[in-house]
Amino acid sequence: MPPDRPRAAEAPVRFRETVGLVGFGRFGRALAELFSRSGRGVRAYDPKAAVPEPWRTASPAELAAAADVLVLAVPVPAVKTALRQLLPALGSDHLVIDVSSVKKRPMEAMRELLGERIAWAATHPLFGPSSLALGERPLRVVVCPRRPGDEAARRARRLYESAGCEVVEQDADEHDRLMARSHALAFFVAKGLLDIGAGEGLPFSPPSFQAMARTIEAVRSDASHLFLAIENENPYAAEARQALLDAMSRVHAHLETAGAAGGEEDAALHIPDLGAQAPELRETRELIDELDRELLSLLARRAELARRARSIKAEHGRGVRDPVREQELLARRRAWAGELGLSPEAVADIFAAVLRFSREVQSG
């Protein structure tokens, strides 16, 4: 089925359902904090990780008894084992969801072990611990219904939307195809660039490589087992990798031929530009729009950090406003503006507005 449009989440409220995390690694912990902030009760089980006392359970059975929704936050090869441990304690009221980056193997395991007796849904949060820590928005999640009117998928959708996520519904097989041509290729290219030391020790680099460097940084922030899952558990990843390698080999061969021919133009080496319908003004405006969208994304991330600061201030009995901190911040921004050739006072006015926005966020 084609993906539908993401729905804007409603304002979080306190829910009766408790979420139980099977696995408390970096992503399990991040999900626990996300659901806790949305007003849901949280419990977790992981014999190898330090789970905070209020959330800790001693066994899969205790976790199932305490939670309504069980989230399998474990590597793909461990999904089946986690399900077997939970199965004796599961009832008809439970919902089990996975959060794997690929869908084929987790769905096969849930179909085999849970069948129609226990409600289950396949999901893929398109964000990681770093995204949550940096306050990046929007937080998108793919939910893969098994059939039209899949109530388990609807329940999973409501769970994520209540945590402030945008949900897209997608056929599981098509999900894996799309991930093979995007997620898997991004990790594959980043791994190759890392292995050859691309960009290391450079005193400068062009914008084209800086974009690649950000991709490498994003990949390095994820656990190594995710790379293996993305590449080896996705049934379409090998085909996508081979297509890329074949294309790069052809480009390499054409470059060698072009060099031998004295630099004559080769149509196979043509890189399409933005098109004849993209004059300079339109292109510039589009770039400005992109930058404004990035600024808004950064503002949303700053708001998330402001909310976190509010919680910390409340724990220490401090008020929202800190005039000394604000003056120091504005002075530092003026200095930064001068270094960049911008008007210090104009930039100070902008950040004064940002501070007002942050105070409103913290007071809300």
Rank of each mutant, 00 (worst) to 15 (best):
P2Q: 14
P2M: 14
P2N: 13
P2R: 13
P3T: 07
P6N: 09
V13Q: 03
R16E: 06
E17N: 06
T18K: 04
V19N: 00
G20R: 05
G20D: 03
R26W: 00
R29G: 00
A32C: 02
L34E: 07
L34C: 04
S38L: 12
S38E: 07
G39Q: 04
G39L: 09
R40M: 07
R43Q: 04
D46E: 06
P47S: 13
A49M: 08
A49L: 06
V51Q: 02
P54N: 05
R56D: 03
A58N: 05
S59W: 05
P60T: 09
L63N: 06
A64D: 07
A66M: 06
A67Q: 06
A67E: 02
V71D: 05
V71T: 06
P75H: 13
V76S: 03
K80F: 10
L83E: 03
Q85D: 11
L86P: 03
L87H: 05
P88V: 06
L90T: 08
V96C: 09
I97Y: 04
R105H: 14
P106H: 07
P106Y: 12
A109R: 02
E112Y: 01
G115T: 10
E116A: 11
A122V: 15
H124A: 10
P125D: 02
P125F: 09
P129E: 09
S130T: 14
A133D: 01
R137E: 08
V141F: 08
V142H: 00
P148C: 15
A153E: 08
R154Y: 09
A156K: 05
R157K: 08
R158H: 04
L159H: 08
Y160V: 07
Q170I: 13
D171Q: 02
H175Q: 08
R177F: 08
M179R: 02
A180F: 04
A180E: 01
H183P: 00
L185A: 07
G192A: 13
D195K: 02
G197Q: 08
G197S: 13
S208W: 01
A211V: 02
T215A: 13
I216W: 02
S221Y: 06
D222G: 06
H225C: 10
L228F: 11
A229D: 08
I230H: 02
A240C: 09
R241M: 12
Q242L: 15
M248K: 01
M248A: 13
H252V: 14
A258L: 15
A260N: 11
A260H: 11
A260E: 15
A261L: 15
G263E: 03
E265C: 09
E265T: 05
A268K: 06
H270I: 12
D273W: 10
G275Q: 07
A278M: 12
E283A: 08
T284E: 14
T284W: 13
E286D: 10
E286I: 12
L287E: 08
L287V: 05
R293I: 15
L295N: 02
L296W: 11
A303N: 07
E304R: 11
E304M: 15
K313L: 14
A314I: 11
V320I: 15
R321P: 00
V324S: 00
L330M: 04
R333K: 12
W336R: 12
W336M: 12
A337V: 03
A337W: 12
L342V: 02
P344T: 10
P344D: 12
E345T: 07
E345S: 12
A346K: 14
A346Y: 05
A352F: 10
A353W: 14
S363I: 12
